[in-house]
Amino acid sequence: MLVTCPKCRSHARPKEPGEEVECPHCGATFVPQSQARKWLVRGGVILGLGAAAAAGSAVVVDCEDPQAEVQPVYGLPATFDPD
C-alpha cells in the first residue's frame, strides 16, 4: 500500500506500521495518517504525533485503491457506467 507525499504528491512505500516515510522524489518525511490514528487509539499518540511533528513530518492520508480500473489502450475510457 502506497501513501502520497504531502509536499509533492509522489507515492511513498511505508516499511513498517507507525514508521516515518521518506518521499523518494522530494525527500520529505511524513507519517501516514491511519498509522497516526492507530497510535491515538493505543494512547501513545500524542507522543507519537508530537515526535513526528518535532521531526518536521507532515501527516497524510493512506492510499486505498477504491476503484482501480482495467484499461488497455485500445479500450474506451471506462467512464461509461451502465447506469
Binding site: 502506497l2 502520497t4 509533492c8 504528491r9 509522489s10 507515492h11 522524489h25 522530494c26 492520508v61 493512506d62 492510499c63 486505498e64 485503491d65 477504491p66 476503484q67 482501480a68 480500473e69 484499461q71 471506462a78
Partner: peptide, 17 residues
C-alpha cells in the same frame, strides 16, 4: 508514479495508483 500519478491517474485523488 512520481509527482504526477496522483493528479493524473483516474481515482488518483482518492488514492488509486
Amino acid at each position: 508514479f512520481g509527482p504526477y500519478e496522483a493528479r493524473l491517474r483516474r481515482g488518483g485523488e482518492r488514492g488509486a495508483y
